[in-house]
Write a protein that binds this DNA or RNA. Structure first.
Length: 589
RNA sequence: GCCGCUGUGGCUCAGGGGUAGAGCAAUUCACUCGUAAUGAAUAGGUCGUGAGUUCAAUUCUCACCAGCGGCUCCA
């Protein structure tokens, strides 16, 4: 018996399930055309083309039909054909997408089909031997997807599903997914009063509420202090500029769709046209340009807590992860060629320090994002420049021991980058942090330094962020900690719960004392039973609940309940404060 | 931008062509020492927005706005 933990077998299993899905769809809706149906992480999908949209109830009917196909114990047979024969078979059935797929197959490739009953599908395989082997499956969602992944092509209907060798595993998987979704920052963040949105303000423009804004402030101070320690100088630059600036930087030609432009370039004349900044680089470069620089001045590291504006398409926005206005720990390092590796590594080290401190280090993966030589419209510079930049970056990466994937065509328009990727509760991957090599913008902005030999040279520039953009980072922290943020960044570190109204003054006095020491603490002043107050505090994901006025314990002590450690019992106030301070300082998670 | 789903008081939801209901939360009063719920009362909604159909629309139709899951794009 093959092992389901083996990725290859699991993919075969799920790929077979996707064929059963397609089979069922063809039985119920014969007019449907088949596109592709691969196994993916955690399941499979199949793309269909059909005039009418599938509905939720169609999905149920399809599941029932799939069940029937499984019960029919249909043997699955592989058939190899010549190109023309294969094309004719598919053309006769009207499967135009399959014909196109066959045309795309390289010369000399073996063209195979898999058949189960009256259903036959173009497929490289492999597959299970019999449909009856699929014991447990579930169709999970309906979605749209472009044919061949290009927005220029027709939008197909994609049905996602998953399957397992037994029902128990399926149940566990679905329960785990359900559980993960409870951490969804978009729900939790709103429930916990971190942020909200308003329909008449607009998409991708969240309102950070006091608690959310507090966390951002804490993170921002932490980052700015840490960067100062590492030799960064701080800048503060405008949120907008004339189009002239973006014409120099290349944004006007390569990023205009992503910008908010104020004024009409056709009507108002170029002088009148301003645009909100989508990136900080061209602004921060001006700090470098204020005087003649010597090789002795380099490296120069600039940092800025920078608010950016990007006109994302309407369907892209997602909670705090994808927004139209965000604030990023932006920085640019101007350096000599021989400093490049060292500065890049230092940037990486800073990013990793941040990730470790946030507790996210284990959750990220690394991606070396390169340009796409076939899409020169998207990128500036020559192939030689790109090759040399990518080679330099490759060399640097080879001198680290990190594992990384390669993302072709994922580079910034001006240079290759190292992206630090993270997944949200839905398993969707986003870039949290990025470090980019730029061999081009210095030249465009005429940034120079006088080298040892007296000649003027263009420096290299590293674009980097240390913690990413704060909104997205906060989103992932909420999901990581299910809303119970580590004490050092928690907007409310402890709540004092007077056991009855008689102890309210005492509670307020303790709160004042703690605030003076820098703790973020609130008093639950409601005249309610203590059990209710504790329940509320727990629902608010409080790290510490301090019960005050317990007659079982002597005065000068509080009953301490911690999210992590449970009931800690009576503790003298001094000990409590020392304990909290220690936890804040250590940033213990 | 594209495909699909959703929008009823702060939250979770019910309802349905004849102008709205529950629980929790809130407020008031009473109670006051224990870990998912003390009791009673009160208040709170032009049913996302705008048009259309209709004698009548929160309910049907359309458009728009916003939220969600994908695709494409991206920090």
């Amino acid at each position: 018996m093959s092992d389901f933990n083996d990725a290859e077998y699991r993919n075969t299993f799920r790929h077979t399930t996707s064929h059963i899905l397609a089979h069922a769809v063809k039985r119920l809706f014969p007019e449907t055309l088949l596109a592709i149906g691969p196994a993916i992480e955690n399941g499979f999908y199949y793309d269909f083309d059909r005039e009418k949209s599938f509905t939720e109830s169609d999905l149920t009917a399809i599941e029932e039909e799939m069940q029937r196909i499984i019960k029919e114990h249909l043997p699955i047979e592989r058939k190899v054909m010549g190109r023309e024969e294969a094309k004719k078979l598919m053309a006769d059935r009207g499967e135009t997408y399959k014909v196109e797929l066959i045309d795309d197959l390289p010369e000399g490739a073996e063209i195979s089909f898999y058949q189960q009953g009256d259903f036959i599908d173009l497929c490289a395989g492999p597959h299970l031997e019999n449909t009856a082997q699929v014991r447990a499956f579930k169709l999970t969602q309906l979605a749209g997807a472009y044919w061949k992944g290009s927005e220029k092509n027709r939008m197909l209907q994609r049905i996602y599903g998953t399957s397992f060798t037994d029902k128990k595993e399926l149940k566990q998987f679905l329960a785990a997914q359900e559980e993960a979704r409870k951490r969804d920052h978009n729900k939790l963040g709103r429930e916990l009063g971190l942020f909200t949105t308003v329909d008449y303000i607009g998409q991708g423009l969240p309102i950070m509420l006091p608690k959310g804004a507090k966390v951002l402030q804490i993170l921002q101070r932490f980052v700015e202090d840490e960067e100062a320690r590492r030799g960064y100088q701080i800048t503060k630059t405008p949120f907008m500029a004339k189009s002239d600036l973006y014409k120099i930087s290349g944004h006007w030609d390569h990023y205009r769709d992503g910008m908010f432009i104020l004024g009409d370039p056709d009507k108002d004349g170029e002088e009148e046209v301003l645009a909100l900044r989508p990136m900080t680089c061209p602004f921060q470069f001006q700090a470098y340009l204020t005087k003649t620089r010597s090789y002795r001045d380099l490296p120069i590291r600039y940092g800025e807590t920078s608010t950016l504006f990007r006109n994302e398409s309407s369907g892209e926005m997602h909670g705090l992860i994808r927004v139209r206005q965000f604030t990023i720990s932006e920085g640019h390092i101007v350096c000599l060629p021989e400093q490049l590796e060292q500065e890049f590594k230092a940037s990486l080290e800073l990013a990793q320090f941040m990730l470790t401190t946030l507790g996210l280090a284990e959750d990220v993966s690394y991606r070396f994002s390169k340009w796409d030589p076939n899409n020169t419209e998207k990128f500036i510079g020559s192939a030689e420049q790109w090759d040399s930049a990518q080679t330099a970056m490759q060399n640097i990466l080879d001198h680290t021991d990190m594992d990384y994937t390669v993302g072709d065509g994922e580079a910034a328009f001006y240079g290759p980058k190292l992206d630090i990727q993270i997944r949200n509760v839905f398993g969707k991957e986003d870039t949290l942090i990025t470090i980019q090599l730029d061999f081009q913008l210095a030249e465009r902005f005429e940034m120079e330094y006088i080298d040892r030999d007296g000649s003027k040279k263009h420096p290299f520039i590293i674009h980097r962020t240390s913690i990413g953009c704060y909104e997205r980072t906060l989103a992932l922290l909420i999901e990581k900690y299910a809303g119970a943020l580590p004490l050092w960044m928690a907007p409310e570190q402890a709540r004092i719960l007077p056991i009855s109204e008689k102890h309210l003054d005492e509670a307020r006095a303790l709160a004042d004392k703690m605030r003076l020491l820098g703790f973020r603490v609130e008093v639950d002043g409601r005249d309610e039973k203590i059990g209710k107050k504790i329940r509320e505090a727990r629902m608010d994901r409080l790290q510490y609940m301090l019960v005050l006025g317990d007659k079982e314990i002597e005065s000068g002590t509080v009953a301490v309940r911690s999210r992590r450690d449970g009931e800690l019992g009576a503790m003298p106030v001094g000990d409590l404060l020392a304990k909290l301070q220690r936890e804040v300082d250590d940033k213990v998670n």
